[in-house]
Design a protein around this nucleic acid. Sequence first.
DNA 1: TCAAAAGTGTTAGTGATACACCCATGC
DNA 2: GCATGGGTGTATCACTAACACTTTTGA
Lengths: 229, 229
Amino acid sequence: MSYSYEYPRPSVTVDAVVFGYDAGELRVLLIERGEEPFRGAWALPGGFVGLDEDLDAAARRELREETGIEPVLLEQLRAFGTRGRDPRGHTVTVAFVALVKLGDHSVQAATDAADARWFPANDPPALAFDHAAILQCARAHMIEAVRTRPVGFDLLPAQFSQTDLQKLVESVLGEELDKRNFRKKLHALGLLLPTGEYETGVPRRAAQLYRFDAARYASLLKEGFQFRL
Amino acid sequence: MSYSYEYPRPSVTVDAVVFGYDAGELRVLLIERGEEPFRGAWALPGGFVGLDEDLDAAARRELREETGIEPVLLEQLRAFGTRGRDPRGHTVTVAFVALVKLGDHSVQAATDAADARWFPANDPPALAFDHAAILQCARAHMIEAVRTRPVGFDLLPAQFSQTDLQKLVESVLGEELDKRNFRKKLHALGLLLPTGEYETGVPRRAAQLYRFDAARYASLLKEGFQFRL
DNA sequence: TCAAAAGTGTTAGTGATACACCCATGC
DNA sequence: GCATGGGTGTATCACTAACACTTTTGA
């Protein structure tokens, strides 16, 4: 007996909602389940927590194993533990949200994932377990996050135009924003550095590219600064 | 064998940070542990999740059993699963925040709680496990909550003065607010109904008492209203 | 020369902040 | 009559929201 508890217990899993951004659309990474239950269905990547494993370490490990992705930003959403959410028996899952720059990663399914692909976050396929509810919760989390933290900088490539960032924010919020007001706020924050480079290959005037001033953001945070778009 | 999984697994517990408000101070309900580990230490009420039990049901059950309290408002904070947080073996706990009107409840310790008492939330005793970190997280949650949701109405008696509410908000935020501005915002929200009754037994002009217009708040919420103080 | 997006300022309104005095009451 | 908090309004400032045209470029 490897446990010191005598109690019967629910199982513990982690699931990750991995968001990326591509072609003007927020995307979510899903795997096709290669094992029962829900074999052949799409699901969030995730799996069982090891006996002596931190929750976030477990989430990273499952992500790596099932999809080949190593996210920079991974944060906990919350736990889901409704009775009956897993047909195999009572299972509590701790859901995480991860953000990745899509260009930095090519996904490759492995272990118990038959396939791994990006889907539109706002129009996903049917999902296994209660993963639709978890995704829904993660999208609500993103709406909050995109306004109060510079998450756009984790989703976009290192260099991006102001319009790129605006389109991303709009696609998360599901509403359009005024270009001039958006840029005014952006410049007021003082977190954008022009790189001196420009878009290429566009059939119109090329936009200035910027990068995120992470050092300045870190120092502003220490002074109690609150990001808000 | 009562499990259908072959995996070794962490244990799952729930812990509740129960906040009340009394004598101008935010308070937290703690129990004195009657069992090892940490016997005799103060801790958050909580315990093991039953094999087929919803997380919030488990939290309510543990609260009832250990302290006699049945909170109206109970919401999940997040899961804590750092390796080594429980000396008995890897244990994941899902923490909840509950708000109660102190006058409605008298606490009484039971089951594995030797004692149950209210402590100042901002100056608690040393706590078992990682409960100090959980409490810290719950306090941060309250700071956010008190600004964006009418939580004051869950902590105060049914009738209260504007000053009561302001003092509560101030004690959660840890900063003082301007009386006139506070009242202006409060009235702008339109959620306070004067009851026509007044404070009694105070050696000065008695303050008008109000109650929270819960029906109006519910209907405002449906229209996409966002509470903010 | 056309299409498509880049870039750029002003105004009006709304909400936030700062601030001080008189009033009612109980002792 | 005095001490205590109850109750009230105004002026300023900052931020938000609404709004349209010219410029650059590639095809």
